[in-house]
Design a protein around this nucleic acid. Sequence first.
DNA 1: TTGAATTTTTAGACTAGTCTAAAAATTGTT
DNA 2: AACAATTTTTAGACTAGTCTAAAAATTCAA
Lengths: 221, 221
Amino acid sequence: MLRLTQSEENYLKAIFTLSQDTEGAISTNELAEKMLTKASSVTDMLKKLCEKELLEYQKYQGCALTNEGKSHALAIIRKHRLWETFLVDKLSFGWDEVHEIAEQLEHIQSTELTDRLDEFLGFPKVDPHGEPIPGKDGRIESVSNRILLSESVVGMRAIIMGVEDDQTEFLQYLNKIGLHLGTQIDILDKLNFDGSIIVMINDKQVQFSITIAKQISIKPL
Amino acid sequence: MLRLTQSEENYLKAIFTLSQDTEGAISTNELAEKMLTKASSVTDMLKKLCEKELLEYQKYQGCALTNEGKSHALAIIRKHRLWETFLVDKLSFGWDEVHEIAEQLEHIQSTELTDRLDEFLGFPKVDPHGEPIPGKDGRIESVSNRILLSESVVGMRAIIMGVEDDQTEFLQYLNKIGLHLGTQIDILDKLNFDGSIIVMINDKQVQFSITIAKQISIKPL
DNA sequence: TTGAATTTTTAGACTAGTCTAAAAATTGTT
DNA sequence: AACAATTTTTAGACTAGTCTAAAAATTCAA
């Protein structure tokens, strides 16, 4: 397998995740924003990754991962989520403390290590934030009837199934209001003018902005 | 604490280990050989590390770590040895399979992670090769009456206490002849002309060159 | 459908780390 | 103490990844 730099790996991962909720090609600017870098840097990297056949790229037309590129991205995501699971399950870190460390650990090169870690953890299906962990073969087991909190309807009762993992402060906030994986919630109301959602959590009312509601996934009961 | 690149960390570690068995300053060439690089590259790096006050360096006079530099080096060695212990104890790797992976893991930046790993492993005192693991504070507990096999005398009976960890093939060879930590050996003979040592291991006679004998440490019984 | 706004690319520069080749300093030997 | 051998440094170049500023392409709106 092609050996990649950390930077190349980070680009692949970013393109993959952006592709998850975007139809068609990913634009240079979109990617630059995600990578906290400049469009010109992105262009350079796209040329290089295209050269290596990890993605398709045509000037001014954005990019899309090839199968090769996708499987690289999935391998990195697999490592990231396995390491997060290790940190929480074995080293007792909080779910809000592991993202940064996993960002480093995901670049460790050794398939053997990854697979043994997977086994050591008991082949977990999801990471501490509820995100599915891709298998050895890169397959992600589809998670049943999950929707975003932003797509819920008033009156619904649901279970918290997953949250975005990349903002420490967001996770700390969830901790503070007592929201964890498996927590039961009731959708009390939605405000039409700004999309805010009012939710009952452990007998307390909490209001989520639409931005937050898009970062939480739930399973309706 | 000062943030260092992987390359800078590798130089510090190399200088530290070379200093262990060399009196006075480490020469540029010596370091270049250890780092598998050119003397000119070493000179550049020494200037940079001197600038950062991690070592003392004067043109043509070699270098020596400052206390700051030493404690950085010890922190990296601590991480390396803890990760090796993790790989062998928890993920069932062989002692001959872990060096390369630990070379990557030793650069993960998180003191919290290191200390929790230490705890998870039960605060081990030595790694799978018998090398002592520096503590949080950088202190290495002195290992009692260990000598190099090369310094043994004929007729001596001893226990294997440690081996160099950085050559996979050497470790595989030791596996093959049934030599592990704790194995008992008898020194049968030493050949004056080349320094070879003939040893009895599990009722089998084995001959070690002086080069090998310097990479094995023992405790006389 | 054309001109303005936006997006994207190019050109050129910078840093970190490395290299080769040549110059300079040190060391060793007589 | 002087010269030869060795070691070390300097000078200049290269790659990867990034940046700024300017040019080019695309998109959008009147």
